[in-house]
Design a protein around this nucleic acid. Structure first.
Lengths: 196, 196
DNA sequence: GCAGAATATTAATCACTGTTCAATAAAAAT
DNA sequence: ATTTTTATTGAACAGTGATTAATATTCTGC
Protein backbone atom coordinates (compact mmCIF):
# COMPACT_ATOMS: atom_id res chain seq x y z
CA UNK A 1 0.00 0.00 0.00
CA UNK A 2 1.00 3.60 -0.30
CA UNK A 3 -0.01 7.18 -0.48
CA UNK A 4 -3.19 7.88 1.38
CA UNK A 5 -3.07 11.58 1.90
CA UNK A 6 -5.83 11.70 4.45
CA UNK A 7 -3.45 14.05 6.20
CA UNK A 8 -1.12 16.71 4.95
CA UNK A 9 2.42 16.87 6.20
CA UNK A 10 1.45 19.52 8.72
CA UNK A 11 -1.61 17.63 9.86
CA UNK A 12 0.52 14.54 10.31
CA UNK A 13 2.97 16.46 12.46
CA UNK A 14 0.20 17.86 14.60
CA UNK A 15 -1.46 14.45 14.84
CA UNK A 16 1.78 12.80 15.94
CA UNK A 17 2.37 15.43 18.58
CA UNK A 18 -1.18 15.26 19.88
CA UNK A 19 -1.10 11.46 19.94
CA UNK A 20 2.21 11.49 21.80
CA UNK A 21 0.89 13.96 24.33
CA UNK A 22 -2.10 11.74 24.97
CA UNK A 23 0.07 8.68 25.24
CA UNK A 24 2.51 10.28 27.66
CA UNK A 25 -0.33 11.64 29.76
CA UNK A 26 -1.83 8.19 29.93
CA UNK A 27 1.18 5.88 30.19
CA UNK A 28 4.18 8.08 30.93
CA UNK A 29 7.14 8.86 28.72
CA UNK A 30 8.99 5.69 29.72
CA UNK A 31 6.41 3.48 27.99
CA UNK A 32 6.54 5.47 24.76
CA UNK A 33 7.69 3.89 21.53
CA UNK A 34 7.61 4.89 17.88
CA UNK A 35 5.41 1.96 16.92
CA UNK A 36 2.89 2.61 19.66
CA UNK A 37 2.52 6.22 18.59
CA UNK A 38 2.10 5.51 14.91
CA UNK A 39 -0.20 2.61 15.71
CA UNK A 40 -2.40 4.89 17.76
CA UNK A 41 -2.33 7.36 14.88
CA UNK A 42 -3.46 4.71 12.44
CA UNK A 43 -0.16 4.72 10.58
CA UNK A 44 2.95 2.56 10.55
CA UNK A 45 6.34 3.41 11.87
CA UNK A 46 7.92 4.56 8.64
CA UNK A 47 5.55 7.48 8.36
CA UNK A 48 6.91 8.94 11.58
CA UNK A 49 10.36 9.24 10.05
CA UNK A 50 9.07 11.18 7.12
CA UNK A 51 7.66 13.82 9.41
CA UNK A 52 10.20 13.84 12.23
CA UNK A 53 13.91 13.13 12.16
CA UNK A 54 13.63 10.59 14.95
CA UNK A 55 11.77 9.92 18.18
CA UNK A 56 13.87 12.53 19.97
CA UNK A 57 12.76 15.10 17.45
CA UNK A 58 9.13 14.20 18.07
CA UNK A 59 9.68 14.49 21.82
CA UNK A 60 11.34 17.84 21.30
CA UNK A 61 8.19 19.14 19.65
CA UNK A 62 6.02 17.71 22.39
CA UNK A 63 8.20 19.46 24.96
CA UNK A 64 8.01 22.67 22.98
CA UNK A 65 4.23 22.57 23.22
CA UNK A 66 4.50 21.90 26.92
CA UNK A 67 6.62 25.01 27.28
CA UNK A 68 4.10 26.94 25.20
CA UNK A 69 1.37 25.64 27.45
CA UNK A 70 3.16 26.85 30.56
CA UNK A 71 3.67 30.22 28.99
CA UNK A 72 0.03 30.46 27.97
CA UNK A 73 -1.07 29.42 31.43
CA UNK A 74 1.08 32.09 33.03
CA UNK A 75 -0.04 34.80 30.67
CA UNK A 76 -3.76 34.14 30.82
CA UNK A 77 -3.79 33.75 34.57
CA UNK A 78 -1.77 36.89 35.07
CA UNK A 79 -4.14 38.77 32.85
CA UNK A 80 -7.09 37.42 34.80
CA UNK A 81 -5.77 38.41 38.21
CA UNK A 82 -2.88 40.85 38.06
CA UNK A 83 -0.72 41.18 41.15
CA UNK A 84 1.44 43.92 42.53
CA UNK A 85 5.00 44.08 43.83
CA UNK A 86 6.46 41.09 45.63
CA UNK A 87 3.30 39.09 45.08
CA UNK A 88 3.98 38.89 41.37
CA UNK A 89 6.90 36.55 41.82
CA UNK A 90 4.94 34.44 44.23
CA UNK A 91 2.13 34.24 41.70
CA UNK A 92 4.58 33.22 39.01
CA UNK A 93 5.87 30.38 41.14
CA UNK A 94 2.42 29.08 41.98
CA UNK A 95 1.36 29.25 38.35
CA UNK A 96 4.40 27.12 37.56
CA UNK A 97 3.39 24.59 40.19
CA UNK A 98 -0.21 24.71 39.07
CA UNK A 99 0.65 23.94 35.47
CA UNK A 100 3.14 21.20 36.25
CA UNK A 101 0.61 19.61 38.58
CA UNK A 102 -1.99 19.71 35.85
CA UNK A 103 0.35 17.95 33.41
CA UNK A 104 2.72 15.92 35.55
CA UNK A 105 3.61 13.36 32.90
CA UNK A 106 4.26 15.91 30.19
CA UNK A 107 6.33 17.97 32.56
CA UNK A 108 8.37 14.95 33.52
CA UNK A 109 8.97 14.16 29.88
CA UNK A 110 10.35 17.66 29.52
CA UNK A 111 12.53 17.52 32.60
CA UNK A 112 13.78 14.09 31.74
CA UNK A 113 14.87 15.02 28.23
CA UNK A 114 18.63 14.81 27.77
CA UNK A 115 20.63 16.38 24.98
CA UNK A 116 23.23 14.19 23.36
CA UNK A 117 26.81 15.06 24.24
CA UNK A 118 27.47 17.02 21.10
CA UNK A 119 24.05 18.28 20.08
CA UNK A 120 22.61 21.60 21.16
CA UNK A 121 18.90 22.31 21.39
CA UNK A 122 17.68 24.13 18.27
CA UNK A 123 17.47 27.90 18.47
CA UNK A 124 13.68 28.04 18.26
CA UNK A 125 13.52 25.78 21.29
CA UNK A 126 16.10 27.74 23.21
CA UNK A 127 14.02 30.81 22.54
CA UNK A 128 11.02 29.26 24.19
CA UNK A 129 13.06 28.59 27.31
CA UNK A 130 14.64 32.01 27.34
CA UNK A 131 11.21 33.48 26.79
CA UNK A 132 10.07 31.97 30.06
CA UNK A 133 13.29 33.03 31.72
CA UNK A 134 12.55 36.49 30.37
CA UNK A 135 9.24 36.57 32.20
CA UNK A 136 11.01 35.73 35.43
CA UNK A 137 13.66 38.36 34.74
CA UNK A 138 11.06 41.01 34.07
CA UNK A 139 9.24 40.37 37.32
CA UNK A 140 12.55 40.18 39.11
CA UNK A 141 13.62 43.58 37.87
CA UNK A 142 10.93 45.14 40.01
CA UNK A 143 12.47 43.60 43.09
CA UNK A 144 16.17 43.86 42.52
CA UNK A 145 18.60 45.66 40.26
CA UNK A 146 21.84 43.65 40.22
CA UNK A 147 22.47 40.18 38.80
CA UNK A 148 18.90 39.91 37.56
CA UNK A 149 19.75 37.35 34.89
CA UNK A 150 21.70 35.19 37.32
CA UNK A 151 18.99 35.29 39.93
CA UNK A 152 16.37 34.43 37.34
CA UNK A 153 18.33 31.37 36.27
CA UNK A 154 18.80 30.27 39.84
CA UNK A 155 15.08 30.63 40.54
CA UNK A 156 14.22 28.74 37.37
CA UNK A 157 16.67 25.95 38.12
CA UNK A 158 15.54 25.82 41.73
CA UNK A 159 11.94 25.37 40.65
CA UNK A 160 12.91 22.53 38.38
CA UNK A 161 15.06 20.91 41.04
CA UNK A 162 12.30 20.96 43.61
CA UNK A 163 9.76 19.87 41.04
CA UNK A 164 11.91 16.98 39.81
CA UNK A 165 12.90 15.62 43.19
CA UNK A 166 9.35 15.92 44.35
CA UNK A 167 7.76 14.10 41.44
CA UNK A 168 10.52 11.47 41.40
CA UNK A 169 9.94 10.94 45.10
CA UNK A 170 13.66 11.38 45.63
CA UNK A 171 13.10 13.39 48.79
CA UNK A 172 14.08 10.75 51.34
CA UNK A 173 11.20 10.92 53.78
CA UNK A 174 8.97 13.50 52.20
CA UNK A 175 9.21 16.13 54.89
CA UNK A 176 8.69 19.74 54.09
CA UNK A 177 5.08 19.51 53.00
CA UNK A 178 3.48 19.71 49.58
CA UNK A 179 5.16 20.78 46.39
CA UNK A 180 3.56 24.20 46.50
CA UNK A 181 4.65 24.64 50.12
CA UNK A 182 8.22 23.94 49.15
CA UNK A 183 8.13 26.15 46.10
CA UNK A 184 6.53 29.00 47.97
CA UNK A 185 9.07 28.77 50.79
CA UNK A 186 11.86 28.67 48.23
CA UNK A 187 10.75 31.71 46.27
CA UNK A 188 9.86 33.79 49.32
CA UNK A 189 13.09 33.00 51.11
CA UNK A 190 15.21 33.59 48.04
CA UNK A 191 13.57 36.91 47.27
CA UNK A 192 14.07 37.94 50.86
CA UNK A 193 17.75 37.13 50.48
CA UNK A 194 18.08 39.08 47.23
CA UNK A 195 16.76 42.20 48.83
CA UNK A 196 19.38 42.37 51.58
CA UNK B 1 30.79 -24.01 29.55
CA UNK B 2 29.97 -23.51 33.15
CA UNK B 3 31.11 -22.85 36.65
CA UNK B 4 34.40 -21.01 36.78
CA UNK B 5 34.49 -19.59 40.26
CA UNK B 6 37.32 -17.16 39.55
CA UNK B 7 35.14 -14.70 41.45
CA UNK B 8 32.92 -15.06 44.45
CA UNK B 9 29.44 -13.63 44.41
CA UNK B 10 30.64 -10.56 46.26
CA UNK B 11 33.65 -10.11 44.01
CA UNK B 12 31.38 -10.37 41.02
CA UNK B 13 29.11 -7.68 42.39
CA UNK B 14 32.03 -5.38 43.06
CA UNK B 15 33.50 -6.09 39.64
CA UNK B 16 30.23 -5.32 37.90
CA UNK B 17 29.86 -2.06 39.79
CA UNK B 18 33.44 -1.00 39.12
CA UNK B 19 33.16 -1.91 35.45
CA UNK B 20 29.92 0.04 35.13
CA UNK B 21 31.46 3.06 36.82
CA UNK B 22 34.35 2.97 34.37
CA UNK B 23 32.01 2.55 31.45
CA UNK B 24 29.74 5.40 32.46
CA UNK B 25 32.71 7.65 33.11
CA UNK B 26 34.03 6.87 29.66
CA UNK B 27 30.89 6.67 27.51
CA UNK B 28 28.05 8.08 29.58
CA UNK B 29 25.08 6.28 31.02
CA UNK B 30 23.08 6.51 27.79
CA UNK B 31 25.48 4.17 26.00
CA UNK B 32 25.36 1.56 28.74
CA UNK B 33 24.02 -1.93 28.09
CA UNK B 34 24.02 -5.18 30.01
CA UNK B 35 26.04 -6.98 27.35
CA UNK B 36 28.68 -4.28 27.16
CA UNK B 37 29.19 -4.41 30.91
CA UNK B 38 29.46 -8.17 31.17
CA UNK B 39 31.64 -8.26 28.07
CA UNK B 40 34.01 -5.77 29.64
CA UNK B 41 33.98 -7.91 32.78
CA UNK B 42 34.91 -11.02 30.84
CA UNK B 43 31.57 -12.69 31.46
CA UNK B 44 28.36 -13.17 29.50
CA UNK B 45 25.07 -11.52 30.06
CA UNK B 46 23.43 -14.27 32.06
CA UNK B 47 25.89 -13.84 34.90
CA UNK B 48 24.71 -10.32 35.54
CA UNK B 49 21.24 -11.57 36.41
CA UNK B 50 22.57 -13.94 39.00
CA UNK B 51 24.17 -11.07 40.85
CA UNK B 52 21.72 -8.23 40.23
CA UNK B 53 17.98 -8.31 39.73
CA UNK B 54 18.23 -6.28 36.55
CA UNK B 55 20.14 -3.41 34.98
CA UNK B 56 18.27 -0.91 37.13
CA UNK B 57 19.43 -2.74 40.23
CA UNK B 58 23.03 -2.54 39.03
CA UNK B 59 22.62 1.17 38.37
CA UNK B 60 21.12 1.61 41.80
CA UNK B 61 24.29 0.21 43.35
CA UNK B 62 26.46 2.39 41.16
CA UNK B 63 24.48 5.42 42.27
CA UNK B 64 24.78 4.32 45.87
CA UNK B 65 28.55 4.35 45.55
CA UNK B 66 28.38 7.77 43.96
CA UNK B 67 26.43 9.02 46.96
CA UNK B 68 28.98 7.39 49.26
CA UNK B 69 31.72 9.11 47.30
CA UNK B 70 30.10 12.50 47.74
CA UNK B 71 29.69 11.88 51.43
CA UNK B 72 33.32 10.78 51.78
CA UNK B 73 34.48 13.82 49.83
CA UNK B 74 32.52 16.13 52.07
CA UNK B 75 33.71 14.49 55.26
CA UNK B 76 37.39 14.30 54.43
CA UNK B 77 37.52 17.82 53.08
CA UNK B 78 35.68 19.22 56.06
CA UNK B 79 38.08 17.43 58.36
CA UNK B 80 41.03 18.84 56.43
CA UNK B 81 39.88 22.45 56.56
CA UNK B 82 37.11 23.06 59.06
CA UNK B 83 35.06 26.22 58.68
CA UNK B 84 33.08 28.36 61.05
CA UNK B 85 29.59 29.82 61.00
CA UNK B 86 28.04 30.85 57.73
CA UNK B 87 31.09 29.69 55.81
CA UNK B 88 30.27 26.07 56.61
CA UNK B 89 27.25 26.04 54.36
CA UNK B 90 29.18 27.74 51.61
CA UNK B 91 31.88 25.11 51.95
CA UNK B 92 29.28 22.36 51.77
CA UNK B 93 27.93 23.75 48.54
CA UNK B 94 31.33 24.07 46.92
CA UNK B 95 32.27 20.55 47.97
CA UNK B 96 29.11 19.39 46.25
CA UNK B 97 30.06 21.23 43.10
CA UNK B 98 33.64 20.01 43.32
CA UNK B 99 32.61 16.39 43.55
CA UNK B 100 29.99 16.55 40.82
CA UNK B 101 32.52 18.27 38.57
CA UNK B 102 35.03 15.53 39.25
CA UNK B 103 32.51 12.84 38.29
CA UNK B 104 30.10 14.49 35.88
CA UNK B 105 28.99 11.31 34.12
CA UNK B 106 28.39 9.38 37.32
CA UNK B 107 26.52 12.28 38.79
CA UNK B 108 24.35 12.55 35.72
CA UNK B 109 23.57 8.86 35.93
CA UNK B 110 22.38 9.46 39.46
CA UNK B 111 20.30 12.51 38.64
CA UNK B 112 18.84 10.87 35.59
CA UNK B 113 17.69 7.77 37.44
CA UNK B 114 13.90 7.47 37.51
CA UNK B 115 11.89 5.31 39.84
CA UNK B 116 9.07 3.37 38.28
CA UNK B 117 5.59 4.66 39.07
CA UNK B 118 4.92 2.12 41.78
CA UNK B 119 8.39 1.23 43.08
CA UNK B 120 10.08 3.04 45.94
CA UNK B 121 13.84 3.24 46.37
CA UNK B 122 15.02 0.63 48.91
CA UNK B 123 15.44 1.79 52.46
CA UNK B 124 19.22 1.43 52.51
CA UNK B 125 19.38 3.77 49.53
CA UNK B 126 16.96 6.26 51.03
CA UNK B 127 19.17 6.31 54.08
CA UNK B 128 22.17 7.36 52.05
CA UNK B 129 20.20 10.29 50.68
CA UNK B 130 18.78 11.28 54.02
CA UNK B 131 22.26 10.98 55.46
CA UNK B 132 23.44 13.69 53.10
CA UNK B 133 20.34 15.71 53.82
CA UNK B 134 21.20 15.27 57.48
CA UNK B 135 24.57 16.90 56.97
CA UNK B 136 22.88 19.88 55.38
CA UNK B 137 20.34 20.03 58.21
CA UNK B 138 23.05 19.93 60.84
CA UNK B 139 24.95 22.81 59.31
CA UNK B 140 21.70 24.65 58.79
CA UNK B 141 20.75 24.39 62.44
CA UNK B 142 23.59 26.72 63.27
CA UNK B 143 22.09 29.37 61.06
CA UNK B 144 18.41 29.05 61.60
CA UNK B 145 15.96 27.48 64.01
CA UNK B 146 12.62 27.08 62.22
CA UNK B 147 11.77 24.86 59.27
CA UNK B 148 15.27 23.40 59.17
CA UNK B 149 14.20 20.24 57.45
CA UNK B 150 12.23 22.10 54.81
CA UNK B 151 15.05 24.52 54.11
CA UNK B 152 17.54 21.66 53.86
CA UNK B 153 15.39 19.96 51.26
CA UNK B 154 15.01 23.15 49.28
CA UNK B 155 18.75 23.72 49.31
CA UNK B 156 19.40 20.14 48.27
CA UNK B 157 16.85 20.29 45.48
CA UNK B 158 18.12 23.67 44.39
CA UNK B 159 21.65 22.34 44.09
CA UNK B 160 20.44 19.48 41.96
CA UNK B 161 18.33 21.74 39.80
CA UNK B 162 21.17 24.09 39.08
CA UNK B 163 23.57 21.22 38.59
CA UNK B 164 21.26 19.40 36.20
CA UNK B 165 20.31 22.34 34.07
CA UNK B 166 23.90 23.40 33.88
CA UNK B 167 25.30 20.05 32.82
CA UNK B 168 22.42 19.45 30.43
CA UNK B 169 23.08 22.85 28.92
CA UNK B 170 19.41 23.65 29.37
CA UNK B 171 20.17 27.20 30.46
CA UNK B 172 19.17 29.04 27.28
CA UNK B 173 22.13 31.30 26.70
CA UNK B 174 24.46 30.37 29.49
CA UNK B 175 24.46 33.62 31.37
CA UNK B 176 25.13 33.75 35.05
CA UNK B 177 28.68 32.44 34.95
CA UNK B 178 30.16 29.11 35.99
CA UNK B 179 28.39 26.39 37.90
CA UNK B 180 30.17 27.28 41.11
CA UNK B 181 29.26 30.94 40.66
CA UNK B 182 25.61 30.02 40.38
CA UNK B 183 25.70 27.62 43.28
CA UNK B 184 27.50 30.08 45.49
CA UNK B 185 25.05 32.86 44.66
CA UNK B 186 22.18 30.49 45.31
CA UNK B 187 23.36 29.35 48.72
CA UNK B 188 24.46 32.76 49.90
CA UNK B 189 21.27 34.45 48.80
CA UNK B 190 19.06 31.75 50.25
CA UNK B 191 20.84 31.78 53.59
CA UNK B 192 20.51 35.53 53.68
CA UNK B 193 16.80 35.12 53.12
CA UNK B 194 16.43 32.52 55.85
CA UNK B 195 17.93 34.81 58.41
CA UNK B 196 15.44 37.61 57.93
C1' DG C 1 -8.17 13.13 -20.18
C1' DC C 2 -3.84 10.94 -19.86
C1' DA C 3 1.07 9.71 -19.48
C1' DG C 4 4.74 10.30 -16.50
C1' DA C 5 6.95 12.18 -12.53
C1' DA C 6 6.82 12.73 -7.70
C1' DT C 7 5.87 11.04 -3.21
C1' DA C 8 3.34 9.16 0.89
C1' DT C 9 2.92 4.75 2.97
C1' DT C 10 3.98 0.25 3.97
C1' DA C 11 6.41 -3.71 5.42
C1' DA C 12 10.51 -6.04 5.64
C1' DT C 13 15.06 -5.75 7.48
C1' DC C 14 18.97 -4.63 10.57
C1' DA C 15 21.35 -4.28 14.69
C1' DC C 16 20.35 -3.58 18.97
C1' DT C 17 17.96 -3.82 23.83
C1' DG C 18 16.72 -6.40 28.62
C1' DT C 19 15.32 -10.64 30.43
C1' DT C 20 14.67 -15.64 30.91
C1' DC C 21 16.09 -20.32 31.02
C1' DA C 22 17.53 -25.09 29.53
C1' DA C 23 21.89 -27.15 29.04
C1' DT C 24 26.30 -27.95 30.77
C1' DA C 25 30.54 -28.37 33.19
C1' DA C 26 32.87 -27.83 37.27
C1' DA C 27 33.04 -27.65 42.20
C1' DA C 28 31.28 -29.42 46.66
C1' DA C 29 29.31 -32.94 49.38
C1' DT C 30 28.58 -37.52 50.41
C1' DA D 1 34.01 -42.34 43.31
C1' DT D 2 29.54 -40.91 42.80
C1' DT D 3 26.01 -37.79 43.46
C1' DT D 4 24.29 -33.29 44.30
C1' DT D 5 24.59 -28.63 43.81
C1' DT D 6 25.43 -24.51 41.31
C1' DA D 7 27.90 -21.02 38.43
C1' DT D 8 28.09 -19.93 33.68
C1' DT D 9 26.88 -19.97 29.14
C1' DG D 10 24.46 -19.05 24.97
C1' DA D 11 20.36 -19.35 22.63
C1' DA D 12 15.68 -17.63 22.47
C1' DC D 13 12.04 -14.06 22.93
C1' DA D 14 9.74 -9.99 22.45
C1' DG D 15 10.63 -5.68 22.12
C1' DT D 16 13.31 -1.20 20.55
C1' DG D 17 14.76 2.72 16.84
C1' DA D 18 16.09 3.45 12.33
C1' DT D 19 16.60 2.52 7.23
C1' DT D 20 14.89 1.52 2.74
C1' DA D 21 13.06 -0.97 -1.49
C1' DA D 22 8.66 -1.56 -3.28
C1' DT D 23 4.32 0.21 -4.32
C1' DA D 24 -0.03 2.65 -4.91
C1' DT D 25 -1.76 7.01 -5.12
C1' DT D 26 -1.79 11.83 -6.10
C1' DC D 27 0.00 15.63 -8.62
C1' DT D 28 1.97 17.93 -12.85
C1' DG D 29 2.41 19.12 -17.60
C1' DC D 30 0.51 18.51 -21.86
Amino acid sequence: MARRADHSREQLKALAIKTTQEFITEHGVAALSARKITGKMGYTIGTLYQVFADVDDLLLHVNAETLDGLRAHIETQRAASPQQGALRLRQLASLYVEYTNQHPQLWQALLHYRWAEDKQPPVWYQEKVSGLLGIVEKVLQEQVTTDVSRHARILWAGLQGISTLYSNRKFAVTGGGSLSDLVEAFVMTYVQGMRS
